[in-house]
Design a protein around this nucleic acid. Structure first.
Length: 546
RNA sequence: GCGCCCGUAGCUCAACCGGAUAGAGCAGCGGACUUCUAAUCCGCAGGUUGCAGGUUCGAGUCCUGCCGGGCGCGCCA
Protein backbone atom coordinates (compact mmCIF):
# COMPACT_ATOMS: atom_id res chain seq x y z
CA UNK A 1 0.00 0.00 0.00
CA UNK A 2 1.24 3.46 -0.73
CA UNK A 3 2.07 5.96 1.97
CA UNK A 4 -1.08 7.92 1.50
CA UNK A 5 -3.17 4.83 2.02
CA UNK A 6 -1.33 3.98 5.20
CA UNK A 7 -1.88 7.44 6.61
CA UNK A 8 -5.55 7.12 5.71
CA UNK A 9 -5.60 3.81 7.59
CA UNK A 10 -4.19 5.42 10.70
CA UNK A 11 -6.84 8.14 10.52
CA UNK A 12 -9.62 5.65 9.97
CA UNK A 13 -8.54 3.69 13.04
CA UNK A 14 -8.32 6.85 15.12
CA UNK A 15 -11.83 7.90 14.13
CA UNK A 16 -13.14 4.45 14.89
CA UNK A 17 -11.51 4.37 18.34
CA UNK A 18 -12.44 7.92 19.27
CA UNK A 19 -15.89 8.34 17.83
CA UNK A 20 -17.01 4.80 17.09
CA UNK A 21 -17.61 5.77 13.46
CA UNK A 22 -16.39 3.89 10.40
CA UNK A 23 -15.42 6.33 7.66
CA UNK A 24 -14.83 5.38 4.06
CA UNK A 25 -13.14 7.45 1.42
CA UNK A 26 -10.86 9.36 3.71
CA UNK A 27 -9.24 12.10 1.70
CA UNK A 28 -5.53 12.40 2.34
CA UNK A 29 -3.52 14.78 0.24
CA UNK A 30 -0.02 16.07 -0.08
CA UNK A 31 -0.16 19.78 0.67
CA UNK A 32 1.55 22.09 -1.73
CA UNK A 33 2.87 24.10 1.18
CA UNK A 34 5.58 22.37 3.24
CA UNK A 35 4.32 24.12 6.36
CA UNK A 36 1.20 22.01 6.11
CA UNK A 37 3.09 18.82 6.71
CA UNK A 38 3.80 15.75 4.60
CA UNK A 39 0.17 14.77 4.47
CA UNK A 40 -3.04 16.50 5.37
CA UNK A 41 -6.63 15.46 5.76
CA UNK A 42 -9.90 17.31 5.85
CA UNK A 43 -11.93 14.53 7.50
CA UNK A 44 -12.95 16.71 10.42
CA UNK A 45 -14.29 19.32 8.01
CA UNK A 46 -15.75 17.03 5.41
CA UNK A 47 -17.63 15.01 7.99
CA UNK A 48 -18.69 17.85 10.24
CA UNK A 49 -22.30 16.75 9.92
CA UNK A 50 -21.45 13.21 11.01
CA UNK A 51 -19.63 14.36 14.11
CA UNK A 52 -22.05 17.18 14.93
CA UNK A 53 -19.28 19.07 16.67
CA UNK A 54 -16.86 21.89 16.03
CA UNK A 55 -14.49 20.66 13.30
CA UNK A 56 -11.43 21.93 15.14
CA UNK A 57 -12.42 20.04 18.24
CA UNK A 58 -12.93 16.86 16.22
CA UNK A 59 -9.62 17.41 14.45
CA UNK A 60 -7.80 17.79 17.76
CA UNK A 61 -9.17 14.52 19.07
CA UNK A 62 -8.14 12.70 15.92
CA UNK A 63 -4.73 14.34 16.04
CA UNK A 64 -4.25 13.23 19.66
CA UNK A 65 -5.22 9.68 18.78
CA UNK A 66 -2.79 9.44 15.86
CA UNK A 67 0.22 11.14 17.39
CA UNK A 68 1.50 7.95 18.98
CA UNK A 69 1.54 5.99 15.72
CA UNK A 70 5.01 4.98 14.60
CA UNK A 71 4.46 6.21 11.07
CA UNK A 72 4.02 9.82 12.18
CA UNK A 73 6.41 12.13 13.93
CA UNK A 74 3.98 14.80 14.96
CA UNK A 75 0.50 16.05 14.13
CA UNK A 76 -0.99 19.51 14.04
CA UNK A 77 -4.45 20.95 13.72
CA UNK A 78 -4.58 24.01 11.51
CA UNK A 79 -6.97 26.44 9.92
CA UNK A 80 -10.66 25.60 10.15
CA UNK A 81 -9.92 21.98 11.05
CA UNK A 82 -7.26 20.47 8.82
CA UNK A 83 -5.03 17.84 10.35
CA UNK A 84 -1.42 17.94 9.20
CA UNK A 85 0.91 15.00 9.55
CA UNK A 86 4.68 14.89 9.54
CA UNK A 87 6.17 11.49 8.90
CA UNK A 88 8.76 10.08 11.26
CA UNK A 89 12.34 9.71 10.02
CA UNK A 90 12.04 5.95 10.42
CA UNK A 91 9.11 5.91 8.03
CA UNK A 92 11.10 7.77 5.42
CA UNK A 93 14.14 5.52 5.75
CA UNK A 94 12.01 2.40 5.54
CA UNK A 95 10.14 3.65 2.50
CA UNK A 96 13.28 4.80 0.74
CA UNK A 97 14.96 1.49 1.36
CA UNK A 98 11.93 -0.24 0.00
CA UNK A 99 12.24 1.90 -3.11
CA UNK A 100 15.92 1.03 -3.49
CA UNK A 101 15.23 -2.66 -3.03
CA UNK A 102 12.44 -2.61 -5.61
CA UNK A 103 14.67 -0.87 -8.13
CA UNK A 104 13.06 -0.63 -11.53
CA UNK A 105 10.04 -2.36 -10.09
CA UNK A 106 9.21 0.47 -7.69
CA UNK A 107 5.76 1.89 -8.30
CA UNK A 108 4.76 -1.14 -10.34
CA UNK A 109 2.10 -3.57 -9.24
CA UNK A 110 1.80 -7.23 -10.12
CA UNK A 111 -0.74 -7.85 -12.89
CA UNK A 112 -4.13 -8.83 -11.57
CA UNK A 113 -7.78 -8.61 -12.43
CA UNK A 114 -9.48 -8.90 -15.78
CA UNK A 115 -7.42 -8.01 -18.83
CA UNK A 116 -8.00 -4.70 -20.56
CA UNK A 117 -8.14 -4.26 -24.31
CA UNK A 118 -6.64 -1.00 -25.38
CA UNK A 119 -7.29 -0.06 -28.98
CA UNK A 120 -5.61 2.97 -30.44
CA UNK A 121 -4.30 4.59 -33.63
CA UNK A 122 -6.35 2.27 -35.87
CA UNK A 123 -5.88 4.44 -38.95
CA UNK A 124 -6.76 2.86 -42.24
CA UNK A 125 -3.83 2.26 -44.56
CA UNK A 126 -4.55 5.00 -47.07
CA UNK A 127 -1.74 7.36 -46.18
CA UNK A 128 1.01 8.24 -43.77
CA UNK A 129 0.34 9.09 -40.13
CA UNK A 130 -0.12 12.78 -39.54
CA UNK A 131 0.55 14.83 -36.45
CA UNK A 132 -2.93 14.20 -35.07
CA UNK A 133 -2.37 10.45 -35.19
CA UNK A 134 0.91 11.09 -33.44
CA UNK A 135 -0.92 12.40 -30.43
CA UNK A 136 -3.16 9.36 -30.36
CA UNK A 137 -0.19 7.04 -30.67
CA UNK A 138 1.76 8.78 -27.93
CA UNK A 139 -1.23 8.96 -25.61
CA UNK A 140 -2.42 5.42 -26.27
CA UNK A 141 0.98 3.85 -25.85
CA UNK A 142 1.74 5.81 -22.68
CA UNK A 143 -1.64 4.90 -21.28
CA UNK A 144 -0.91 1.24 -21.99
CA UNK A 145 2.41 1.47 -20.20
CA UNK A 146 0.86 3.33 -17.26
CA UNK A 147 -1.95 0.84 -16.88
CA UNK A 148 0.49 -2.05 -17.06
CA UNK A 149 2.60 -0.43 -14.36
CA UNK A 150 -0.51 -0.07 -12.24
CA UNK A 151 -1.14 -3.79 -12.47
CA UNK A 152 -3.57 -4.12 -15.34
CA UNK A 153 -3.08 -6.75 -17.98
CA UNK A 154 -3.20 -4.78 -21.19
CA UNK A 155 -3.49 -5.90 -24.80
CA UNK A 156 -2.77 -3.32 -27.45
CA UNK A 157 -4.68 -3.62 -30.66
CA UNK A 158 -4.77 -1.79 -33.96
CA UNK A 159 -8.00 -2.17 -35.92
CA UNK A 160 -7.97 -1.43 -39.60
CA UNK A 161 -9.87 -1.89 -42.79
CA UNK A 162 -8.18 -2.50 -46.12
CA UNK A 163 -11.26 -3.13 -48.20
CA UNK A 164 -14.39 -1.27 -49.14
CA UNK A 165 -15.19 1.89 -50.93
CA UNK A 166 -12.56 4.11 -49.33
CA UNK A 167 -9.87 1.68 -50.30
CA UNK A 168 -11.20 1.49 -53.81
CA UNK A 169 -10.94 5.24 -54.14
CA UNK A 170 -7.48 5.10 -52.71
CA UNK A 171 -6.45 2.42 -55.20
CA UNK A 172 -7.79 4.49 -58.05
CA UNK A 173 -5.87 7.49 -56.82
CA UNK A 174 -2.67 5.49 -57.10
CA UNK A 175 -3.73 3.92 -60.40
CA UNK A 176 -4.18 7.31 -62.05
CA UNK A 177 -0.61 8.25 -61.23
CA UNK A 178 0.73 4.88 -62.18
CA UNK A 179 -0.96 5.04 -65.57
CA UNK A 180 0.28 8.55 -66.13
CA UNK A 181 3.86 7.36 -65.64
CA UNK A 182 3.37 5.30 -68.76
CA UNK A 183 1.61 8.04 -70.67
CA UNK A 184 -1.66 6.25 -70.24
CA UNK A 185 -5.02 7.32 -68.97
CA UNK A 186 -6.82 5.67 -66.05
CA UNK A 187 -10.48 6.51 -66.24
CA UNK A 188 -12.53 6.75 -63.09
CA UNK A 189 -16.27 7.02 -62.91
CA UNK A 190 -16.15 9.77 -60.35
CA UNK A 191 -13.20 11.88 -59.33
CA UNK A 192 -15.01 12.96 -56.18
CA UNK A 193 -13.23 11.82 -53.03
CA UNK A 194 -9.99 10.82 -54.67
CA UNK A 195 -6.91 11.05 -52.52
CA UNK A 196 -4.26 13.68 -52.96
CA UNK A 197 -0.69 13.94 -51.83
CA UNK A 198 2.87 13.43 -52.87
CA UNK A 199 3.05 10.04 -51.23
CA UNK A 200 0.73 8.70 -53.94
CA UNK A 201 3.46 9.34 -56.50
CA UNK A 202 5.85 7.45 -54.32
CA UNK A 203 3.54 4.48 -54.11
CA UNK A 204 3.00 4.58 -57.87
CA UNK A 205 6.76 4.53 -58.46
CA UNK A 206 7.21 1.56 -56.14
CA UNK A 207 4.26 -0.13 -57.77
CA UNK A 208 5.90 0.39 -61.10
CA UNK A 209 9.24 -1.04 -60.10
CA UNK A 210 7.41 -4.07 -58.72
CA UNK A 211 5.02 -4.71 -61.62
CA UNK A 212 6.27 -2.65 -64.54
CA UNK A 213 3.68 -1.89 -67.15
CA UNK A 214 1.81 -5.14 -67.03
CA UNK A 215 -1.05 -4.04 -64.72
CA UNK A 216 -2.20 -1.68 -67.43
CA UNK A 217 -2.92 -4.51 -69.78
CA UNK A 218 -5.00 -6.43 -67.29
CA UNK A 219 -8.73 -6.36 -66.75
CA UNK A 220 -9.39 -3.06 -64.97
CA UNK A 221 -11.05 -4.55 -61.92
CA UNK A 222 -8.29 -7.13 -61.48
CA UNK A 223 -5.63 -4.48 -61.85
CA UNK A 224 -7.36 -2.21 -59.38
CA UNK A 225 -7.49 -5.03 -56.87
CA UNK A 226 -3.77 -5.63 -57.27
CA UNK A 227 -3.04 -1.96 -56.96
CA UNK A 228 -5.18 -1.56 -53.86
CA UNK A 229 -3.55 -4.50 -52.13
CA UNK A 230 -0.13 -3.19 -52.99
CA UNK A 231 -0.97 0.36 -51.93
CA UNK A 232 -2.58 -0.50 -48.61
CA UNK A 233 0.32 -2.80 -47.88
CA UNK A 234 2.68 0.01 -48.70
CA UNK A 235 0.88 2.34 -46.30
CA UNK A 236 0.72 -0.24 -43.56
CA UNK A 237 4.47 -0.74 -43.80
CA UNK A 238 4.94 2.99 -43.70
CA UNK A 239 2.71 3.35 -40.65
CA UNK A 240 4.45 0.52 -38.85
CA UNK A 241 7.81 2.07 -39.57
CA UNK A 242 6.65 5.36 -38.10
CA UNK A 243 5.20 3.65 -35.06
CA UNK A 244 8.42 1.76 -34.49
CA UNK A 245 10.27 5.02 -34.67
CA UNK A 246 8.38 6.38 -31.67
CA UNK A 247 8.54 3.10 -29.79
CA UNK A 248 4.89 2.17 -30.14
CA UNK A 249 4.12 -1.51 -30.47
CA UNK A 250 0.94 -3.52 -30.81
CA UNK A 251 0.09 -7.03 -29.76
CA UNK A 252 -2.17 -7.46 -32.72
CA UNK A 253 -3.28 -5.81 -35.92
CA UNK A 254 -6.91 -6.70 -36.34
CA UNK A 255 -8.34 -6.63 -39.82
CA UNK A 256 -12.02 -5.82 -40.27
CA UNK A 257 -12.19 -8.31 -43.12
CA UNK A 258 -11.59 -11.20 -40.74
CA UNK A 259 -14.84 -10.39 -38.98
CA UNK A 260 -16.76 -11.02 -42.18
CA UNK A 261 -14.77 -14.12 -42.99
CA UNK A 262 -15.39 -15.66 -39.59
CA UNK A 263 -19.09 -14.88 -39.84
CA UNK A 264 -18.92 -12.68 -36.76
CA UNK A 265 -20.65 -9.78 -38.44
CA UNK A 266 -23.58 -11.80 -39.62
CA UNK A 267 -23.84 -13.50 -36.29
CA UNK A 268 -23.99 -10.22 -34.39
CA UNK A 269 -26.55 -8.71 -36.76
CA UNK A 270 -28.65 -11.81 -36.34
CA UNK A 271 -28.42 -11.55 -32.57
CA UNK A 272 -29.43 -7.92 -32.68
CA UNK A 273 -32.44 -8.87 -34.75
CA UNK A 274 -33.38 -11.58 -32.28
CA UNK A 275 -33.08 -9.05 -29.48
CA UNK A 276 -36.00 -7.17 -30.98
CA UNK A 277 -34.16 -3.89 -31.37
CA UNK A 278 -33.96 -3.91 -35.15
CA UNK A 279 -36.72 -2.67 -37.43
CA UNK A 280 -37.22 -2.08 -41.14
CA UNK A 281 -37.82 1.32 -42.56
CA UNK A 282 -37.36 2.77 -46.03
CA UNK A 283 -35.83 -0.49 -47.14
CA UNK A 284 -33.09 -0.48 -44.55
CA UNK A 285 -32.69 -2.18 -41.19
CA UNK A 286 -32.32 0.19 -38.30
CA UNK A 287 -30.92 -0.50 -34.88
CA UNK A 288 -32.92 1.29 -32.21
CA UNK A 289 -29.86 2.79 -30.57
CA UNK A 290 -31.98 5.61 -29.17
CA UNK A 291 -33.36 3.10 -26.70
CA UNK A 292 -29.86 2.91 -25.25
CA UNK A 293 -28.93 6.55 -25.01
CA UNK A 294 -28.09 7.52 -28.58
CA UNK A 295 -29.62 10.63 -30.13
CA UNK A 296 -31.38 8.73 -32.83
CA UNK A 297 -31.58 5.32 -34.42
CA UNK A 298 -28.90 4.18 -36.86
CA UNK A 299 -28.93 2.18 -40.02
CA UNK A 300 -27.37 -1.22 -39.56
CA UNK A 301 -28.10 -2.78 -42.94
CA UNK A 302 -28.47 -0.52 -45.95
CA UNK A 303 -31.31 -0.87 -48.39
CA UNK A 304 -28.92 -2.50 -50.86
CA UNK A 305 -28.29 -5.24 -48.33
CA UNK A 306 -24.76 -4.25 -47.39
CA UNK A 307 -23.77 -3.37 -43.85
CA UNK A 308 -22.92 0.06 -42.55
CA UNK A 309 -19.65 0.33 -40.68
CA UNK A 310 -21.60 -0.08 -37.47
CA UNK A 311 -22.15 -3.78 -37.98
CA UNK A 312 -18.50 -4.81 -38.09
CA UNK A 313 -17.64 -2.32 -35.38
CA UNK A 314 -20.18 -3.75 -32.97
CA UNK A 315 -19.05 -7.23 -33.98
CA UNK A 316 -15.46 -6.26 -33.30
CA UNK A 317 -16.21 -5.04 -29.80
CA UNK A 318 -18.35 -8.05 -29.18
CA UNK A 319 -15.35 -10.12 -30.20
CA UNK A 320 -13.23 -8.30 -27.60
CA UNK A 321 -15.77 -9.32 -24.99
CA UNK A 322 -15.78 -12.90 -26.25
CA UNK A 323 -12.02 -12.99 -25.93
CA UNK A 324 -12.39 -12.38 -22.21
CA UNK A 325 -11.57 -8.73 -21.78
CA UNK A 326 -13.26 -7.06 -18.84
CA UNK A 327 -12.87 -3.59 -20.28
CA UNK A 328 -12.33 -2.21 -23.75
CA UNK A 329 -10.68 1.19 -23.94
CA UNK A 330 -10.86 2.87 -27.35
CA UNK A 331 -8.60 5.80 -28.04
CA UNK A 332 -10.20 7.80 -30.84
CA UNK A 333 -9.79 11.15 -32.50
CA UNK A 334 -12.34 13.75 -31.48
CA UNK A 335 -13.78 13.70 -34.98
CA UNK A 336 -15.28 10.34 -34.02
CA UNK A 337 -17.27 11.88 -31.20
CA UNK A 338 -20.52 10.49 -32.54
CA UNK A 339 -19.21 6.98 -32.42
CA UNK A 340 -19.29 5.94 -28.74
CA UNK A 341 -23.05 6.22 -28.05
CA UNK A 342 -24.06 4.08 -31.02
CA UNK A 343 -21.45 1.38 -30.54
CA UNK A 344 -22.20 1.22 -26.85
CA UNK A 345 -25.88 1.03 -27.69
CA UNK A 346 -25.19 -1.91 -29.95
CA UNK A 347 -23.22 -3.67 -27.25
CA UNK A 348 -25.82 -3.07 -24.57
CA UNK A 349 -28.44 -4.40 -26.96
CA UNK A 350 -26.33 -7.56 -27.12
CA UNK A 351 -26.42 -7.78 -23.35
CA UNK A 352 -22.95 -6.44 -22.55
CA UNK A 353 -22.54 -4.19 -19.53
CA UNK A 354 -22.74 -0.49 -20.22
CA UNK A 355 -19.31 0.25 -18.82
CA UNK A 356 -17.53 -2.38 -20.91
CA UNK A 357 -16.57 0.19 -23.52
CA UNK A 358 -14.60 3.18 -22.36
CA UNK A 359 -13.91 5.67 -25.14
CA UNK A 360 -11.18 8.24 -24.66
CA UNK A 361 -11.40 10.98 -27.24
CA UNK A 362 -8.13 12.62 -28.12
CA UNK A 363 -8.82 16.21 -29.07
CA UNK A 364 -7.45 17.53 -32.27
CA UNK A 365 -4.03 18.95 -32.71
CA UNK A 366 -4.03 22.41 -34.14
CA UNK A 367 -0.85 22.99 -36.04
CA UNK A 368 0.49 26.49 -35.96
CA UNK A 369 3.11 27.56 -38.43
CA UNK A 370 4.30 31.08 -39.00
CA UNK A 371 1.55 32.29 -36.72
CA UNK A 372 -1.16 30.67 -38.80
CA UNK A 373 -3.17 27.56 -38.34
CA UNK A 374 -2.27 24.82 -40.77
CA UNK A 375 -5.31 23.02 -42.02
CA UNK A 376 -4.74 19.40 -42.71
CA UNK A 377 -6.94 16.81 -44.19
CA UNK A 378 -5.81 13.52 -45.56
CA UNK A 379 -8.12 13.67 -48.52
CA UNK A 380 -7.05 17.16 -49.51
CA UNK A 381 -3.45 16.06 -49.38
CA UNK A 382 -2.34 19.04 -47.37
CA UNK A 383 -0.84 17.28 -44.40
CA UNK A 384 2.10 17.43 -42.12
CA UNK A 385 3.17 13.89 -41.48
CA UNK A 386 4.31 12.54 -38.16
CA UNK A 387 7.59 11.58 -39.78
CA UNK A 388 8.20 15.16 -40.81
CA UNK A 389 7.53 16.32 -37.29
CA UNK A 390 9.88 13.68 -35.90
CA UNK A 391 12.57 14.78 -38.33
CA UNK A 392 12.22 18.29 -36.98
CA UNK A 393 11.96 17.86 -33.24
CA UNK A 394 13.08 14.31 -32.54
CA UNK A 395 11.25 11.36 -31.03
CA UNK A 396 11.71 12.24 -27.36
CA UNK A 397 10.50 15.80 -27.74
CA UNK A 398 7.49 14.75 -29.81
CA UNK A 399 6.37 12.01 -27.45
CA UNK A 400 6.84 14.16 -24.39
CA UNK A 401 5.12 17.17 -25.90
CA UNK A 402 2.17 15.08 -27.01
CA UNK A 403 1.34 13.68 -23.59
CA UNK A 404 2.25 16.71 -21.56
CA UNK A 405 -1.23 18.14 -21.81
CA UNK A 406 -4.48 16.36 -21.16
CA UNK A 407 -5.73 14.38 -24.15
CA UNK A 408 -9.12 15.91 -23.51
CA UNK A 409 -8.13 19.46 -24.44
CA UNK A 410 -7.27 20.83 -27.81
CA UNK A 411 -3.61 21.28 -28.35
CA UNK A 412 -1.82 24.05 -30.17
CA UNK A 413 1.32 22.67 -31.67
CA UNK A 414 3.42 25.59 -32.74
CA UNK A 415 5.87 24.01 -35.14
CA UNK A 416 8.24 26.95 -35.25
CA UNK A 417 8.31 27.14 -31.50
CA UNK A 418 8.80 23.41 -31.07
CA UNK A 419 11.71 23.44 -33.45
CA UNK A 420 13.28 26.66 -32.30
CA UNK A 421 12.87 26.04 -28.63
CA UNK A 422 13.58 22.37 -28.58
CA UNK A 423 16.57 23.10 -26.37
CA UNK A 424 14.25 24.63 -23.82
CA UNK A 425 11.74 21.83 -23.91
CA UNK A 426 10.84 20.49 -20.47
CA UNK A 427 11.78 17.01 -21.61
CA UNK A 428 15.41 18.05 -21.50
CA UNK A 429 14.92 19.41 -18.03
CA UNK A 430 13.83 15.99 -16.84
CA UNK A 431 16.42 14.11 -18.86
CA UNK A 432 19.13 16.43 -17.62
CA UNK A 433 18.39 15.51 -14.00
CA UNK A 434 18.89 11.88 -14.96
CA UNK A 435 22.11 12.59 -16.82
CA UNK A 436 23.45 14.61 -13.90
CA UNK A 437 22.93 11.72 -11.54
CA UNK A 438 24.55 9.34 -13.98
CA UNK A 439 27.51 11.67 -14.06
CA UNK A 440 27.89 11.55 -10.29
CA UNK A 441 28.00 7.78 -10.32
CA UNK A 442 30.54 7.81 -13.12
CA UNK A 443 32.71 10.10 -11.06
CA UNK A 444 32.29 7.93 -7.97
CA UNK A 445 32.91 4.81 -10.06
CA UNK A 446 29.85 3.21 -8.52
CA UNK A 447 26.89 1.34 -9.88
CA UNK A 448 23.62 3.01 -8.85
CA UNK A 449 22.00 -0.44 -8.86
CA UNK A 450 24.15 -1.61 -5.96
CA UNK A 451 24.46 1.54 -3.92
CA UNK A 452 23.12 -0.04 -0.74
CA UNK A 453 20.77 1.23 1.94
CA UNK A 454 20.15 4.72 3.11
CA UNK A 455 21.65 5.17 6.57
CA UNK A 456 19.44 6.22 9.46
CA UNK A 457 20.53 9.82 9.56
CA UNK A 458 18.74 13.12 9.58
CA UNK A 459 17.62 14.48 6.20
CA UNK A 460 18.33 18.05 5.20
CA UNK A 461 15.24 19.97 3.99
CA UNK A 462 16.15 19.57 0.31
CA UNK A 463 16.83 15.87 0.83
CA UNK A 464 13.55 15.44 2.60
CA UNK A 465 11.61 17.26 -0.09
CA UNK A 466 13.24 15.06 -2.72
CA UNK A 467 12.47 11.93 -0.72
CA UNK A 468 8.82 12.85 -0.31
CA UNK A 469 8.50 13.44 -4.02
CA UNK A 470 10.07 10.08 -4.82
CA UNK A 471 7.65 8.29 -2.53
CA UNK A 472 4.72 9.85 -4.33
CA UNK A 473 5.45 7.98 -7.54
CA UNK A 474 3.27 4.90 -6.94
CA UNK A 475 0.25 7.03 -6.18
CA UNK A 476 0.75 9.13 -9.31
CA UNK A 477 0.94 6.01 -11.47
CA UNK A 478 -2.14 4.46 -9.93
CA UNK A 479 -4.18 7.66 -10.24
CA UNK A 480 -3.14 8.15 -13.84
CA UNK A 481 -4.14 4.60 -14.71
CA UNK A 482 -7.48 4.88 -12.96
CA UNK A 483 -8.38 8.16 -14.61
CA UNK A 484 -6.96 7.10 -18.01
CA UNK A 485 -4.68 10.09 -18.13
CA UNK A 486 -1.08 10.22 -19.21
CA UNK A 487 -0.30 13.87 -18.53
CA UNK A 488 0.09 13.52 -14.75
CA UNK A 489 3.35 11.65 -15.42
CA UNK A 490 5.13 14.58 -17.12
CA UNK A 491 3.77 16.90 -14.46
CA UNK A 492 5.17 14.63 -11.78
CA UNK A 493 8.52 14.18 -13.49
CA UNK A 494 9.02 17.90 -13.81
CA UNK A 495 8.35 18.38 -10.12
CA UNK A 496 10.68 15.54 -9.24
CA UNK A 497 13.40 16.97 -11.49
CA UNK A 498 12.97 20.34 -9.80
CA UNK A 499 13.39 18.76 -6.36
CA UNK A 500 16.52 17.05 -7.56
CA UNK A 501 18.06 20.13 -9.18
CA UNK A 502 17.36 22.10 -6.00
CA UNK A 503 18.99 19.42 -3.90
CA UNK A 504 21.93 19.21 -6.25
CA UNK A 505 22.56 22.94 -6.17
CA UNK A 506 22.71 23.07 -2.38
CA UNK A 507 24.36 19.78 -1.48
CA UNK A 508 27.44 18.07 -2.76
CA UNK A 509 27.03 14.33 -3.04
CA UNK A 510 30.60 13.09 -3.09
CA UNK A 511 31.73 14.39 0.27
CA UNK A 512 34.23 12.80 2.66
CA UNK A 513 31.82 12.08 5.48
CA UNK A 514 30.83 8.44 4.97
CA UNK A 515 27.29 8.66 6.27
CA UNK A 516 26.38 11.82 4.39
CA UNK A 517 27.92 10.50 1.20
CA UNK A 518 26.05 7.22 1.47
CA UNK A 519 22.77 8.95 2.23
CA UNK A 520 23.07 11.24 -0.76
CA UNK A 521 24.25 8.52 -3.09
CA UNK A 522 21.26 6.43 -2.08
CA UNK A 523 18.93 9.37 -2.70
CA UNK A 524 20.51 9.90 -6.11
CA UNK A 525 20.15 6.24 -7.00
CA UNK A 526 16.52 6.33 -5.95
CA UNK A 527 15.90 9.46 -8.00
CA UNK A 528 17.62 8.09 -11.07
CA UNK A 529 15.53 4.99 -10.77
CA UNK A 530 12.21 6.83 -10.55
CA UNK A 531 13.12 9.26 -13.32
CA UNK A 532 13.94 6.35 -15.59
CA UNK A 533 10.73 4.53 -14.70
CA UNK A 534 8.67 7.63 -15.30
CA UNK A 535 10.29 8.45 -18.61
CA UNK A 536 9.84 4.85 -19.66
CA UNK A 537 6.10 5.18 -19.05
CA UNK A 538 6.18 7.88 -21.72
CA UNK A 539 8.46 6.03 -24.10
CA UNK A 540 11.09 8.71 -23.65
CA UNK A 541 14.77 7.87 -23.24
CA UNK A 542 16.70 8.44 -20.05
CA UNK A 543 20.16 9.45 -21.25
CA UNK A 544 23.31 8.78 -19.21
CA UNK A 545 24.97 11.80 -20.76
CA UNK A 546 23.77 15.00 -22.32
C1' G B 1 -30.79 24.44 -33.89
C1' C B 2 -29.51 19.98 -30.60
C1' G B 3 -25.51 17.04 -28.09
C1' C B 4 -20.41 16.40 -26.14
C1' C B 5 -15.66 18.92 -24.95
C1' C B 6 -12.76 23.25 -23.75
C1' G B 7 -12.11 28.79 -21.89
C1' U B 8 -6.76 29.48 -15.84
C1' A B 9 -0.30 34.63 -16.16
C1' G B 10 1.76 37.68 -22.73
C1' C B 11 2.41 32.05 -24.77
C1' U B 12 2.06 26.42 -23.80
C1' C B 13 -0.10 23.91 -19.81
C1' A B 14 -0.89 22.01 -14.26
C1' A B 15 -3.94 22.10 -9.96
C1' C B 16 -4.21 14.77 -6.46
C1' C B 17 -13.10 13.87 -8.20
C1' G B 18 -15.04 20.67 -2.99
C1' G B 19 -9.97 22.58 0.73
C1' A B 20 -5.44 26.40 3.30
C1' U B 21 -1.93 32.19 -0.07
C1' A B 22 -4.38 29.09 -7.98
C1' G B 23 1.25 26.55 -9.55
C1' A B 24 5.28 25.12 -13.44
C1' G B 25 7.91 25.89 -18.11
C1' C B 26 8.75 29.51 -22.05
C1' A B 27 9.07 34.79 -22.99
C1' G B 28 10.77 39.61 -19.67
C1' C B 29 14.01 41.85 -15.71
C1' G B 30 17.99 41.09 -11.86
C1' G B 31 21.52 37.81 -9.42
C1' A B 32 24.70 32.81 -8.73
C1' C B 33 29.84 28.54 -11.92
C1' U B 34 38.29 27.89 -8.94
C1' U B 35 34.21 22.35 -6.08
C1' C B 36 29.90 15.79 -8.71
C1' U B 37 27.33 18.68 -16.05
C1' A B 38 24.96 26.46 -15.49
C1' A B 39 20.39 22.12 -20.64
C1' U B 40 20.94 24.24 -13.54
C1' C B 41 19.67 27.30 -9.20
C1' C B 42 17.76 31.91 -6.50
C1' G B 43 14.88 36.41 -6.76
C1' C B 44 11.37 40.11 -9.18
C1' A B 45 7.26 40.99 -12.21
C1' G B 46 3.00 38.77 -14.24
C1' G B 47 -4.33 36.47 -12.35
C1' U B 48 -11.48 39.49 -10.93
C1' U B 49 -9.61 31.21 -13.20
C1' G B 50 -14.59 33.97 -20.10
C1' C B 51 -19.20 36.71 -17.76
C1' A B 52 -23.47 36.68 -14.25
C1' G B 53 -26.03 34.27 -10.57
C1' G B 54 -26.68 29.85 -7.20
C1' U B 55 -25.41 25.63 -3.70
C1' U B 56 -22.01 25.84 1.68
C1' C B 57 -18.01 26.54 6.70
C1' G B 58 -15.13 26.83 1.81
C1' A B 59 -15.88 26.88 -5.61
C1' G B 60 -10.91 27.12 -10.96
C1' U B 61 -13.52 22.46 -9.54
C1' C B 62 -20.62 21.25 -8.45
C1' C B 63 -25.78 23.57 -10.57
C1' U B 64 -28.36 27.30 -13.92
C1' G B 65 -28.08 31.03 -17.73
C1' C B 66 -25.24 33.75 -21.12
C1' C B 67 -20.41 34.82 -24.26
C1' G B 68 -16.41 32.72 -27.17
C1' G B 69 -13.86 28.37 -29.58
C1' G B 70 -13.60 23.01 -31.16
C1' C B 71 -15.98 18.45 -32.60
C1' G B 72 -20.25 15.70 -33.77
C1' C B 73 -25.36 15.38 -35.60
C1' G B 74 -24.88 10.45 -43.57
C1' C B 75 -28.22 4.16 -45.99
C1' C B 76 -19.31 7.75 -45.28
C1' A B 77 -15.65 5.35 -42.00
Amino acid sequence: MNLEGRVAGVIRAAVRDTFGVELNGIHVERPGDARHGDFATNVALANAKVFRRNPREVAQKIADATEAEAIVDHVEVAGPGFINFWLSPETLWNELNGLLRDGAHYGRQEPSGEPVMLEFVSVNPTGPMHVGHGRQAAYGDSLARIMEAAGRKVSREYYFNDGGNQIRLFGESVAIRYARMHGREWSVADSEGLYQGDYLEEIARDLDSEYGERLLDMETEDALREISVFSTGWCMDDIKKTLARVGVRFDRYFNEKSLYESGKVEEVVEQLREGGNVYKSEGASWLATSRFGDDKDRVLVKSDGSYTYMAPDVAYHRDKWDRGFGTAVDVLGADHAGYPPRIRAGLVALGLPEDFLDVELVRLVKLISEGEQVKFSKRAGHIVTLDELLDEVGEDVARYFYVRSSHNTEMNFDLDLAIKQSDENPVFYVQYAHARIASIFRRAELDPETVGEIPASQLAPEERALAMELLDFPRVVENAAASREAHPIPTYLETLATRFHQFYTVHRVLVDDEETRQRRLALCAATKNVLRSGLDLLGVSAPEKM
